[in-house]
Amino acid sequence: MSTFNPYLPELATIQEIIQETHNIKTFRVVLNDEEKMKNFSFEPGQVGQLSVFGVGESTFVINSPPTRMDYLQFSVMKTGEVTERLHALNEGDQIGVRAPLGKCFPYEEMKGKDIIFIGGGIGMAPLRTLLLYMLDNRSDYGDISLLYGARTPNDMAYSYELEEWLSRDDMKTTLTIDAEYPDWQHKVGLIPNVLLEMNPSPKNCIAVTCGPPIMIKFTIQALTKLGFEDSQIVTTLEKRMKCGVGICGRCNIGTSYVCKDGPAYTYEQLKQLPNEL
């Protein structure tokens, strides 16, 4: 009898690679086992461990929504050993996938509410999953707005989708960069400042934010200033992970294991955890 082995990755093929920015690539991946690919299910916000065999594993959010299952999409910023090797791979190459892992965004509880997404840099990846999921189930949600910022226009991932998002009449998209840049048509300013300027109403609204730690910190401060309750703010955490299933012991904050209990948390939940980010 064979038992399920949570450490054993599924073999998968890289179908397509998109160069997003100078240091971010997006990988569209399909499991080699057709049956498993067909039956693969996950919820927005859940993550996966990608293996480059011989190098190791690293954790990335599945940033394609469960409503679009032609492939699983992961965006990877080149920062360490595994990500560097991932960036060196080609379409058709084999990797391993352990997914889904972790908990999803509270997308059921968000039904009927207005949603504001606030993403910075690569932090747009998990928001993309939820945003596309909501657009694919548009009638379940109220007003949807997106504030997406990056250092420069060249650091903005998913640039090829931004035109569509900007032109949609069922969502409102605001783009910003940190400093003036030639031919930039959108906002200039740090995300929290632009957010304050946008002045979204906290009434019946949930804010979902992800980005570099410093950006999350000031964005949450801004949201609080705008009157958002802690329970109306959702974010995601990053930690060094190995097992991905809550055993190996490195990603905990007190009693909460980010790999299995996160990575999505409400600010209310985060405040109950010890201060170790």
């Binding site: 450490y7 065999f53 011989g54 190098v55 190791g56 594993e57 190996c248 490195r250």
Partner: peptide
Amino acid sequence: YCFNITDETAGNTGKRVRTWD
């Protein structure tokens, strides 16, 4: 009970090992 998982290779073959951490 904490552990590490690392890959080690020799040519075209390799293994994923779990070690005490």
